[in-house]
């Protein structure tokens, strides 16, 4: 399962629009995507409530893991990009 650690780019953390964008992308990815703090329990990235409950702030490191599938690597790249981007800039 491909995974990557990424720093959260959004000033508000994973909340509001950045969280919605992430959840939308994860729920339409076609493969299971999970996120969590490195070394801690990961949650379903398609669940807005789970993502919010992580309480992720700007600059926090987040590990993204994508289940094995045909397009796992491209899904990982696009999810990582969403998390790394500052959507309010």
């Amino acid at each position: 399962m491909p995974s990557q650690i990424v720093a959260v780019g959004s000033k508000v953390g994973l909340h509001a629009r950045p969280a919605s964008l992430l959840v939308k992308a994860a729920s339409t990815a076609g493969v299971a995507v999970s996120i969590g703090r490195p070394g801690e329990k990961a949650v379903n990235a398609a669940s807005l409530l789970s993502v919010l409950a992580l309480g992720v702030k700007n600059g926090d490191s987040i590990e993204v893991t994508v289940a094995d599938g045909d397009n796992s690597d491209s899904v990982l790249a696009s999810i990582v990009e969403i998390i790394a981007t500052d959507h309010d800039a």
Partner: peptide, 16 residues
Amino acid sequence: KEVLGAQAMMARDPSV
């Protein structure tokens, strides 16, 4: 709009 959109996503939350 954003609040309502997020609420809709919560109502469809797979974990729930």
